[in-house]
């Protein structure tokens, strides 16, 4: 049987324990401080690198802006070209309302009709005076003008302002068409 007896005074044991604990704290503390110093240095270094990159980009941008400025006439011409084309596209080859209404009325008139006057105003409204040889031509004219398929739904109202029949049996009519 082995018997061990600690003859050291208890203060010494406590001091030793305290010393070991302090070494641990010292190790952890120094590690923390070193990590902090490392992080500070790292962020600083990254910032320096980043500033260098930013300066590089700024120089590149300034250079490119200068080159764009040198080519400003080309850019102005392109801008003008695009700007003009947008307007021209709305009008070139697109019949105005007045022209398309006139073309439609001309198409809807029976061949036997003789138009003595026709007027298409700024709103697209049409007034015309026509002489028709017979009743069927008159009927055909009115039917064509009022049929939504024939008039392509471009007319909202067709008004017969006057209708006369002369001795020869010719119909003279004055019509007003309101465009949509």
């Amino acid at each position: 049987m082995k018997i061990s007896i600690n003859l050291l005074p208890p203060e010494l044991t406590a001091q030793k324990k305290k010393s070991v604990k302090f070494i641990k704290i010292q190790f952890i503390g120094i590690s923390i401080v070193l990590v902090m110093i490392f992080l500070s240095s790292l962020t600083l270094a990254l910032r320096i690198l980043q500033n260098r990159n930013i300066s590089l980009y700024q120089a590149r941008v300034a250079g490119a802006e200068q080159r764009v400025s040198d080519l400003k006439n080309t850019q102005a011409s392109l801008t003008l070209l695009k700007n003009r084309l947008q307007v021209i596209d709305q009008y070139l080859g697109v019949a105005s309302k007045q022209t398309s209404i006139y073309q439609l009325v001309d198409k809807l008139l029976p061949q036997s009709a003789v138009v003595s006057s026709i007027s298409v105003d700024q709103t697209g409204g049409v007034t015309f005076v026509a002489v028709l040889p017979d009743n069927s031509a008159l009927e055909s004219l009115v039917t064509n003008l009022t049929d939504t398929e024939e008039n392509k739904e471009k007319f909202s109202q067709v008004t017969i302002e006057s209708l006369n029949r002369d001795k020869q049996g010719l119909y003279r009519t004055s019509l007003r068409i309101k465009a949509i």
Binding site: Y91, G93, A95, Q98, T99, V115, Q122
Partner: peptide, 26 residues
């Protein structure tokens, strides 16, 4: 007239027909 209207609206200069007035047609 239809040909003229078409020529006007397809001319080298942008032109729009605003009013058409035909009188004494014979």
């Amino acid at each position: 007239l239809q040909g003229l209207l078409s020529n006007l609206e397809n001319s080298p200069r942008l032109i729009r027909v605003k009013v058409i007035d035909i009188s004494s047609a014979n």
